[in-house]
Amino acid sequence: MIDTQLFRKAMGEFATGITVVSANDKHGEVKGITVNAFMSLSLDPTLVAVSISNKASIIQTLADANQFGISVLSDQQKELSMIFAKQKEADQPVPFDILDETPVLKDALVQLVCEKESEVEAGDHTIYIAKVKELQVQEGQPIIYYGGSYQYLK
């Protein structure tokens, strides 16, 4: 049996970008969560995958939604990452853009609108596979997560 804390430490040795996955709930309210388990899957069709804990408050929203947004955060958006990771309270409304009726974070490096293709339960997480329907790309540098803390490219 592998120790879960050791496994977590080992996985922290893999540097990742930081995203916020967002969707409208059934009442039209925007829900979001910070996610670093994100990857591209295919160019044809354009598919991505995100992995979300089954304990996350957004899990029912994503189960109900046909599409969701993914925002790749810039090095200027650490505070937004912390807000959606529930590590910090927002002191003002979070700025969203709406693309194809889907919320994405304003000024993110990349804004994706994704149509859910499938979901797969994998242990204590659900992996959402989605087709990218729309995307916007902006100039800037990413914020990354490595060794349990935020890092910046130099």
Results as ranks from 00 to 15, higher is better:
K86P: 07
S81G: 14
V104P: 04
N54C: 12
S74M: 09
T34E: 04
Q87E: 15
V113E: 01
F14N: 07
T16Q: 05
P103M: 10
G69Y: 07
G69Q: 03
T16C: 08
S118E: 13
T102R: 12
A90C: 11
S40D: 08
N24M: 08
A65F: 05
V94A: 09
A15L: 10
E115A: 02
L112E: 00
L109A: 01
Q111V: 00
K88A: 14
E29R: 12
A63F: 06
E13D: 07
K106Y: 06
P95Y: 06
V120R: 03
M82Q: 15
H27V: 03
D100G: 02
T19G: 00
K31M: 10
F68K: 04
T46N: 12
S53T: 03
I18C: 00
F68V: 07
N24Y: 13
E121I: 09
E29C: 06
E89R: 14
K88Y: 02
E89A: 15
A65L: 04
L62F: 06
T46Q: 13
Q67I: 06
I52Q: 00
G28L: 08
L109Q: 02
F84I: 09
S22C: 07
T126I: 12
V94L: 11
E117M: 07
D44P: 00
C114M: 00
V20Y: 02
V120A: 04
T102A: 07
A49C: 14
K78P: 01
D64W: 00
M39N: 15
D25V: 09
N24T: 01
I59A: 08
G69V: 04
L41V: 15
K31F: 00
T46D: 12
K55R: 13
L41Y: 03
L73T: 09
S22Q: 03
G32N: 01
I70E: 01
V48K: 11
D64M: 04
V50W: 06
G69M: 08
L62N: 08
T34Q: 01
K86T: 14
T61V: 14
S42A: 07
A37P: 01
G28E: 09
D97S: 14
H125Q: 04
G17L: 10
Q76T: 15
P93T: 01
T16S: 14
D44A: 10
D64Q: 12
V120F: 09
P45I: 10
V50T: 03
N36G: 05
A85S: 14
Q111P: 03
L109M: 03
E89V: 14
Q60D: 15
D100L: 15
K116S: 06
K78D: 10
K26T: 10
E121P: 04
I33Y: 00
D91E: 15
L80R: 09
S71W: 07
G69L: 08
Q67K: 14
A23H: 00
V20H: 03
K86D: 15
H125F: 02
F68P: 06
